[in-house]
Amino acid sequence: MNEIASTAPPPRDLSAYKEEPVPGGALLVVAYAVVWVLVFVWIARLALRQTRLEREVHALSDRVDGGAEP
């Protein structure tokens, strides 16, 4: 039983959450908001990279085509 006594946090009082006035609804809204913000930031990041890379591929292939071998 005392296997993790010195490294893990002490066992907590499991009834604590009932007495503590934590707004469950607010946490819920924050949780969903965070996930959606995360996903949209991620997709926006990908879109930016896609545009930048497309421009780069464009420029590079123009250079490859433009300076054909003599």
Binding site: N2, E3, I4, A5, S6, T7
Partner: peptide, 11 residues
Amino acid sequence: VQVTVLAQDDA
């Protein structure tokens, strides 16, 4: 770490 803890505690 756990083995060393257990060895110290004789557990």
